[in-house]
Design a protein around this nucleic acid. Structure first.
Lengths: 184, 184
DNA sequence: ACAAGTTGTAATTCACTGATAACTAAATAA
DNA sequence: TTATTTAGTTATCAGTGAATTACAACTTGT
């Protein structure tokens, strides 16, 4: 058996991971704090104790996902093609991009919206800074990223993809530099 | 005062409009059937009576939004630039694209996911068919559409936009053919 | 050993929400 | 007019879920 008692910091980390798993699949409102508690083998009130509110836990999930994405880009290289390959890896993890998508969807909540806007802007600026590419190329890169994010959420690209429909094969095949490593 | 009693078909239409307003802002789970009922000046149980379940009302909203988008493209012309201009108009309406985004976010629900995948594929194929453009150009067009959808949801593009941050001005400015008609 | 802090739970509350049931009233048909 | 369908309501329920409180058990410094 693993350790029974963890420090609050360790447990919080673990809960943020569980939160990303749950929120990325079901979204902010449909995910219960009890779902997340169960994923971490902890009682529901303890989740609230550590994070105060469900909203703050969601925000923590957004921030970790955004940081992981930034780190993936930083590790990838300094040209857009390398960052594009990094996107493939992000899509393979599936949860991070989906978590951000849930952030976009929940951004009418002011507290969530402010964080999501901030992190989105930071990622954009990071790509600009890392690659030094023209604004239009960065925009195109980001647009492709949004398309892949949506296709991932629809489960037509990336792992766990639904049986391929013709339109999807064509669309995904037309994304330059993207290799869909589905495990069907 | 307007008519008091409408036919079921008229009332259902009106409810789907109200549903799109509410769902597009708050998402599937966070929107209550009572919110929608109030928007249409109708009792909450009547909403359930007309649509059976909340889920079916959401699906009806997705289908209308998708149909409206298809119609907008059909009316726009036969080249990608014209369809791009149509996107500006869609973004100005704000609710339709946001409704679809909420569909992407809620697509882990099997019943919703199936409909959203189907309509997404139909829109892609419609663009191909209308323009006869290369797959890669259509993909790029769609990717730009997803970026605009997200920026609209974040309220940094389109009407009701939050005060412009520098990164956003640069990003939006780099989208070819897109003119952000914000009313600030 | 023991006090104090830290990690965690069980029990409970209270507001909310989708759905059902039973009923009313307006329109339409016979 | 009367019968029937159609449009709509009020009342209510059963379930849920975030948050609070009070308590228990483990760890650590002294």
């Amino acid at each position: 058996m693993g350790k029974v008692r963890l420090t609050a910091a360790e447990r919080s980390d673990q809960l943020v991971s569980a939160a990303i798993s749950a929120f990325s699949a079901s979204g902010y409102a449909a995910t219960t704090t009890d779902d997340i508690a169960r994923l971490a083998n902890v009682s529901q009130p303890y989740v609230i104790r550590l994070f105060g509110t469900k909203r703050r836990l969601f925000v923590a999930g957004i921030e970790r996902a955004a940081s992981r994405i930034e780190q993936t880009f930083r590790d990838a290289g300094t040209d857009l093609d390398s960052l594009g390959a990094a996107y493939d890896r992000l899509l393979a993890e599936r949860e991070l991009l989906a978590m951000l998508l849930q952030g976009y969807a929940a951004s009418s909540d002011p507290e969530i919206g402010a964080v999501v806007r901030d992190r989105f802007g930071r990622i954009y600026l990071l790509i600009r800074e890392l690659t030094g590419a023209e604004a239009e190329d960065v925009q195109r890169f980001l647009a492709t990223g949004m398309l892949l994010t949506v296709l991932g959420a629809l489960q037509v690209a990336g792992p766990g993809a639904v049986p391929a429909e013709p339109w999807m094969t064509e669309l995904i095949g037309s994304i330059p530099g993207f290799v869909d490593d589905r495990q069907s």
